[in-house]
Protein backbone atom coordinates (compact mmCIF):
# COMPACT_ATOMS: atom_id res chain seq x y z
CA UNK A 1 0.00 0.00 0.00
CA UNK A 2 2.86 2.34 0.83
CA UNK A 3 4.33 2.49 -2.66
CA UNK A 4 1.41 4.32 -4.19
CA UNK A 5 0.64 6.64 -1.27
CA UNK A 6 1.46 10.21 -2.16
CA UNK A 7 4.40 11.85 -0.54
CA UNK A 8 2.33 14.71 0.82
CA UNK A 9 -0.17 13.36 3.32
CA UNK A 10 -1.95 16.48 4.47
CA UNK A 11 -2.59 19.78 2.74
CA UNK A 12 -4.56 22.65 4.17
CA UNK A 13 -5.11 25.69 2.02
CA UNK A 14 -6.17 29.14 3.22
CA UNK A 15 -8.17 27.98 6.20
CA UNK A 16 -10.33 30.65 7.78
CA UNK A 17 -12.63 30.14 10.70
CA UNK A 18 -14.94 32.60 12.39
CA UNK A 19 -16.96 32.24 15.58
CA UNK A 20 -19.61 34.92 15.28
CA UNK A 21 -17.77 38.01 14.16
CA UNK A 22 -14.43 37.01 15.62
CA UNK A 23 -11.96 35.58 13.19
CA UNK A 24 -10.14 32.85 15.10
CA UNK A 25 -8.11 31.45 12.21
CA UNK A 26 -7.00 33.65 9.35
CA UNK A 27 -5.67 32.25 6.11
CA UNK A 28 -3.68 29.33 7.48
CA UNK A 29 -2.02 26.95 5.03
CA UNK A 30 -0.15 23.84 6.05
CA UNK A 31 1.55 20.97 4.34
CA UNK A 32 2.71 17.74 5.86
CA UNK A 33 4.93 15.08 4.31
CA UNK A 34 5.26 11.43 5.16
CA UNK A 35 7.95 10.76 7.72
CA UNK A 36 7.75 14.20 9.22
CA UNK A 37 6.81 15.59 12.64
CA UNK A 38 5.35 19.06 12.47
CA UNK A 39 5.04 21.16 15.60
CA UNK A 40 2.25 23.69 15.78
CA UNK A 41 3.36 26.34 18.23
CA UNK A 42 1.65 29.30 19.75
CA UNK A 43 0.41 30.95 22.92
CA UNK A 44 -2.77 29.86 24.61
CA UNK A 45 -5.70 30.95 22.47
CA UNK A 46 -3.59 31.33 19.33
CA UNK A 47 -5.87 28.91 17.49
CA UNK A 48 -3.92 25.66 17.69
CA UNK A 49 -6.83 23.54 18.86
CA UNK A 50 -9.25 25.13 16.39
CA UNK A 51 -6.83 24.41 13.55
CA UNK A 52 -6.55 20.78 14.63
CA UNK A 53 -10.31 20.43 14.93
CA UNK A 54 -10.61 21.64 11.35
CA UNK A 55 -7.88 19.29 10.12
CA UNK A 56 -9.71 16.33 11.64
CA UNK A 57 -13.15 17.23 10.39
CA UNK A 58 -14.64 18.03 13.78
CA UNK A 59 -15.14 21.63 12.74
CA UNK A 60 -15.68 22.89 9.25
CA UNK A 61 -13.70 25.91 8.08
CA UNK A 62 -15.56 28.99 6.80
CA UNK A 63 -13.31 28.93 3.79
CA UNK A 64 -10.33 26.98 2.58
CA UNK A 65 -9.84 23.33 1.81
CA UNK A 66 -8.20 20.33 3.44
CA UNK A 67 -6.89 17.25 1.70
CA UNK A 68 -5.79 14.10 3.49
CA UNK A 69 -3.74 11.76 1.29
CA UNK A 70 -5.17 13.57 -1.72
CA UNK A 71 -8.80 13.14 -0.62
CA UNK A 72 -10.85 16.25 0.00
CA UNK A 73 -12.11 16.25 3.59
CA UNK A 74 -15.24 18.25 2.81
CA UNK A 75 -16.31 16.24 -0.23
CA UNK A 76 -15.44 12.69 0.85
CA UNK A 77 -15.24 12.94 4.62
CA UNK A 78 -15.47 9.22 5.41
CA UNK A 79 -12.76 8.25 2.93
CA UNK A 80 -10.45 11.01 4.09
CA UNK A 81 -10.98 10.32 7.79
CA UNK A 82 -9.95 6.69 7.35
CA UNK A 83 -6.37 7.99 7.07
CA UNK A 84 -6.61 9.98 10.26
CA UNK A 85 -5.84 9.46 13.93
CA UNK A 86 -6.69 12.23 16.35
CA UNK A 87 -6.00 12.87 19.99
CA UNK A 88 -7.98 15.93 21.12
CA UNK A 89 -6.99 18.16 24.02
CA UNK A 90 -9.00 16.00 26.42
CA UNK A 91 -8.53 12.32 25.54
CA UNK A 92 -11.87 11.02 24.17
CA UNK A 93 -12.29 8.12 26.58
CA UNK A 94 -15.32 6.08 27.52
CA UNK A 95 -14.43 5.89 31.18
CA UNK A 96 -16.69 2.93 31.92
CA UNK A 97 -14.97 0.59 29.43
CA UNK A 98 -11.80 -1.42 29.95
CA UNK A 99 -8.68 -0.41 28.03
CA UNK A 100 -8.97 -3.48 25.78
CA UNK A 101 -12.65 -2.93 25.01
CA UNK A 102 -12.09 0.72 24.29
CA UNK A 103 -9.11 0.23 21.99
CA UNK A 104 -10.94 -2.58 20.23
CA UNK A 105 -13.87 -0.24 19.66
CA UNK A 106 -11.60 2.56 18.44
CA UNK A 107 -9.88 0.23 15.96
CA UNK A 108 -13.16 -1.12 14.58
CA UNK A 109 -14.56 2.40 14.40
CA UNK A 110 -11.71 3.36 12.08
CA UNK A 111 -12.73 0.54 9.78
CA UNK A 112 -10.24 -2.15 10.81
CA UNK A 113 -11.35 -5.73 10.18
CA UNK A 114 -11.86 -7.76 13.32
CA UNK A 115 -9.18 -10.27 12.29
CA UNK A 116 -6.56 -7.51 12.21
CA UNK A 117 -7.66 -5.87 15.42
CA UNK A 118 -6.11 -8.45 17.72
CA UNK A 119 -2.59 -7.95 16.42
CA UNK A 120 -3.01 -4.18 16.27
CA UNK A 121 -4.22 -4.16 19.85
CA UNK A 122 -1.19 -6.10 21.10
CA UNK A 123 1.22 -3.93 19.12
CA UNK A 124 -0.31 -0.66 20.26
CA UNK A 125 -0.47 -1.65 23.90
CA UNK A 126 3.16 -2.62 23.77
CA UNK A 127 4.10 0.68 22.11
CA UNK A 128 2.20 2.80 24.59
CA UNK A 129 3.13 0.73 27.65
CA UNK A 130 -0.44 -0.29 28.40
CA UNK A 131 0.00 -4.06 28.75
CA UNK A 132 -0.25 -4.00 32.53
CA UNK A 133 -3.55 -2.13 32.58
CA UNK A 134 -5.30 -3.71 29.62
CA UNK A 135 -8.08 -5.27 31.74
CA UNK A 136 -8.64 -2.19 33.89
CA UNK A 137 -11.54 0.23 33.65
CA UNK A 138 -10.31 3.46 32.07
CA UNK A 139 -11.97 5.63 34.70
CA UNK A 140 -9.81 4.08 37.43
CA UNK A 141 -6.51 4.83 35.66
CA UNK A 142 -4.24 7.74 36.50
CA UNK A 143 -4.14 10.79 34.25
CA UNK A 144 -0.87 9.68 32.69
CA UNK A 145 -2.28 6.28 31.73
CA UNK A 146 -5.45 7.87 30.40
CA UNK A 147 -3.34 10.13 28.21
CA UNK A 148 -1.51 7.05 26.91
CA UNK A 149 -4.80 5.33 26.13
CA UNK A 150 -5.72 8.52 24.26
CA UNK A 151 -2.53 8.27 22.20
CA UNK A 152 -3.10 4.55 21.65
CA UNK A 153 -6.56 5.10 20.14
CA UNK A 154 -5.07 7.65 17.73
CA UNK A 155 -2.40 5.27 16.38
CA UNK A 156 -3.98 1.82 16.65
CA UNK A 157 -5.14 1.75 13.02
CA UNK A 158 -1.76 2.93 11.67
CA UNK A 159 -3.14 6.09 10.09
CA UNK A 160 -1.14 8.11 7.58
CA UNK A 161 -1.77 11.34 9.45
CA UNK A 162 -1.66 11.53 13.23
CA UNK A 163 -2.94 14.69 14.86
CA UNK A 164 -2.00 15.13 18.51
CA UNK A 165 -3.24 18.07 20.54
CA UNK A 166 -0.81 18.65 23.43
CA UNK A 167 0.08 14.96 23.81
CA UNK A 168 2.39 15.34 26.82
CA UNK A 169 0.13 17.40 29.07
CA UNK A 170 -0.36 15.80 32.47
CA UNK A 171 2.44 13.26 32.15
CA UNK A 172 5.38 12.93 34.54
CA UNK A 173 8.91 13.53 33.24
CA UNK A 174 9.63 9.84 32.59
CA UNK A 175 6.38 9.42 30.70
CA UNK A 176 7.03 12.60 28.72
CA UNK A 177 10.30 11.11 27.57
CA UNK A 178 8.61 7.84 26.58
CA UNK A 179 5.87 9.62 24.68
CA UNK A 180 8.40 11.78 22.88
CA UNK A 181 10.33 8.71 21.81
CA UNK A 182 7.09 7.16 20.63
CA UNK A 183 6.15 10.23 18.59
CA UNK A 184 9.61 10.37 17.07
CA UNK A 185 9.24 6.71 16.12
CA UNK A 186 5.82 7.30 14.62
CA UNK A 187 7.20 10.24 12.70
CA UNK A 188 9.50 7.95 10.75
CA UNK A 189 6.70 6.05 9.03
CA UNK A 190 3.65 8.29 9.41
CA UNK A 191 3.09 12.02 9.43
CA UNK A 192 2.56 13.57 12.81
CA UNK A 193 1.27 17.01 13.59
CA UNK A 194 1.31 18.04 17.21
CA UNK A 195 0.48 21.19 19.06
CA UNK A 196 2.37 22.33 22.09
CA UNK A 197 3.63 25.37 23.91
CA UNK A 198 6.60 23.57 25.38
CA UNK A 199 9.60 24.64 23.34
CA UNK A 200 11.80 21.81 24.57
CA UNK A 201 9.35 19.38 23.02
CA UNK A 202 9.70 21.08 19.66
CA UNK A 203 13.45 20.98 19.87
CA UNK A 204 13.59 17.28 20.66
CA UNK A 205 10.99 15.84 18.31
CA UNK A 206 9.82 18.19 15.57
CA UNK A 207 11.37 18.39 12.12
CA UNK A 208 9.45 21.48 11.22
CA UNK A 209 7.67 24.23 13.12
CA UNK A 210 4.74 26.44 12.29
CA UNK A 211 4.05 29.27 14.70
CA UNK A 212 0.51 30.55 15.08
CA UNK A 213 -0.18 33.93 16.56
CA UNK A 214 -3.74 35.21 16.96
CA UNK A 215 -4.97 32.98 14.20
CA UNK A 216 -2.30 33.62 11.58
CA UNK A 217 0.82 31.73 10.72
CA UNK A 218 3.78 33.94 11.54
CA UNK A 219 6.58 31.49 10.98
CA UNK A 220 7.15 28.31 9.09
CA UNK A 221 10.45 26.51 8.77
CA UNK A 222 12.58 23.74 10.16
CA UNK A 223 13.37 23.56 13.84
CA UNK A 224 17.04 24.17 13.16
CA UNK A 225 16.21 27.32 11.20
CA UNK A 226 14.11 28.68 14.05
CA UNK A 227 16.92 27.89 16.43
CA UNK A 228 19.38 30.16 14.62
CA UNK A 229 17.05 32.71 13.09
CA UNK A 230 19.39 35.55 14.03
CA UNK A 231 22.52 33.76 13.10
CA UNK A 232 23.22 32.60 16.65
CA UNK A 233 22.26 29.03 17.61
CA UNK A 234 20.41 28.13 20.79
CA UNK A 235 18.00 31.04 20.51
CA UNK A 236 14.81 29.00 20.10
CA UNK A 237 12.94 30.56 23.00
CA UNK A 238 13.98 34.13 22.22
CA UNK A 239 13.06 33.71 18.59
CA UNK A 240 9.69 32.24 19.48
CA UNK A 241 8.85 35.10 21.83
CA UNK A 242 10.05 37.70 19.36
CA UNK A 243 7.94 36.19 16.56
CA UNK A 244 4.77 35.99 18.61
CA UNK A 245 5.15 39.47 20.05
CA UNK A 246 6.12 41.25 16.86
CA UNK A 247 2.57 41.07 15.55
CA UNK A 248 0.21 43.93 16.40
Amino acid sequence: MTYNTPEITLTARNLTRRFGNREIIRDVSLELKRGEVLGLLGHNGAGKTTTMQMLTGCLSPNSGSIEICGIDLARQPTLAKAHLGYLPETPPLYRELTVDDYLNFAARLRGMKSVDVFAALARTKQRCGLEAVSKKIIGTLSKGYQQRVGIAQAIIHQPDVIVLDEPTVGLDPAQIREVRTLIRELGNTHSVILSTHVLGEVESICDRVEILNRGSLVYSGTTAELDKLNGVTGQLEENFIRLTEAQP
Binding site: P77, T78, Y94
Partner: peptide, 14 residues
Amino acid sequence: RNQTLSLLLSSPLS
Protein backbone atom coordinates in the same frame (compact mmCIF):
# COMPACT_ATOMS: atom_id res chain seq x y z
CA ARG B 1 -19.28 16.62 27.80
CA ASN B 2 -16.65 13.86 27.92
CA GLN B 3 -15.18 15.05 24.62
CA THR B 4 -15.71 11.61 23.12
CA LEU B 5 -17.81 13.17 20.38
CA SER B 6 -14.59 14.24 18.65
CA LEU B 7 -13.59 10.57 18.45
CA LEU B 8 -16.80 9.84 16.55
CA LEU B 9 -16.59 12.97 14.41
CA SER B 10 -12.99 12.32 13.39
CA SER B 11 -13.70 8.66 12.57
CA PRO B 12 -14.77 7.53 9.12
CA LEU B 13 -18.47 7.59 10.02
CA SER B 14 -21.37 9.53 8.66
